[in-house]
Computed example of a mutant assay.
Amino acid sequence: MKLLSAIVPCYNEEENVPYFYEEFIKNEPYFEAHEIGFELWYIDDGSRDGTLSEIRKLQEKDPRIHYVSFSRNFGKEAALYAGFEKAQGDYVACMDADLQDPPSLLPQMFEDIAAGYDTVATRRVTRKGEPPIRSLFARLFYRLMNCFSETEIVDGARDFRLMTRQVADAILSMKEYNRFTKGIYGFVGFKTKWIEFENVERKKGETKWSFWKLFIYSLEGITSFTTAPLAFAAFMGVAFCLVSFGLIIFTIIRKVIFGDPTSGWPSLVCIISLISGVQLFCLGIVGEYLAKTYMEVKNRPIYLVKEER
């Protein structure tokens, strides 16, 4: 019998934990018919509500449920990595506890794996229910990533996917501290089948991803899988040097020929402010990469476990 390990990151999902289990267990007839056992790994990412208590209640009823509880909130990327480390199955699935990743898609995903695919991934074809500004910036992010990075990231891609053991081991081999799992999925490659589905609203509660958190996450993704911003900073430096050199020549010639007195200090202040802003922007890009290097060489653990069962 083959084993499926399902990884379910949770952060303040007290209301959704039992609902997710109910939806997931509906696939049991399919699993039994195809001789697939399963284990559910709930990864409690330092929740402040009763998420862990709800998981314990489920575990008392079903021994196939396991959990890891972090000492504090380390983020979804750390929770996913912890799940990959604990998963022992022949197949590994990643899904959200809020039911925006419908467990009902698992049978179809298994059929695609049986057809020869290494990974079956999901993507949303609509962003119904999201604020328009958030959807706009999300699409812009995917376009930027695919323009600058050699690692392809599909627009609307979810973390919800089913993969073989070989793919899971490849993901585990990437032990970087600054993790961007969507990029890691693309980096490891393998034969992937994409399933499209309509956006599904959360079952209960509110999203933990504010616009600012998503913005920081997008910066993490861009700096993790492309050095294009550094090249852009270098290009801006060269371009402004050339422009400055041209303006110096122009000023000297104008002075020699026309003898114009020095004037225009307001425009000079604007130019200095512009160039200073560009310099600080480029310095910030370099600083972002330096900060990632700093965190990597400290070699801190990606997460710390408070309780596991």
Rank of each mutant, 00 (worst) to 15 (best):
F211T: 15
S5A: 14
A157I: 13
Y67A: 01
F215V: 12
E60M: 11
L304Q: 14
L136W: 10
N199D: 07
R48C: 09
V68T: 13
L99R: 05
K182P: 15
T126F: 01
F137M: 13
C282R: 10
G183R: 00
S244F: 09
E85S: 06
A231W: 15
I195Q: 02
T126E: 05
G37W: 01
H66C: 07
T151Q: 04
R123P: 04
V92S: 03
T207K: 01
S104G: 04
I55T: 11
D101S: 14
F190A: 09
D44V: 10
N27D: 08
G186E: 04
R139E: 12
D155Q: 10
F180H: 12
K255D: 05
Y67G: 08
I222D: 04
G89T: 05
G277A: 02
F190W: 08
T119A: 01
C10E: 12
E308A: 15
E307F: 03
V68A: 15
P131L: 06
T151R: 07
E35W: 01
E296L: 05
G205A: 09
S267I: 13
A231F: 15
A87E: 03
D45A: 03
I171A: 09
R127K: 11
T223G: 03
F232S: 07
A168R: 15
E35H: 14
Y217E: 15
L214Y: 01
P63N: 08
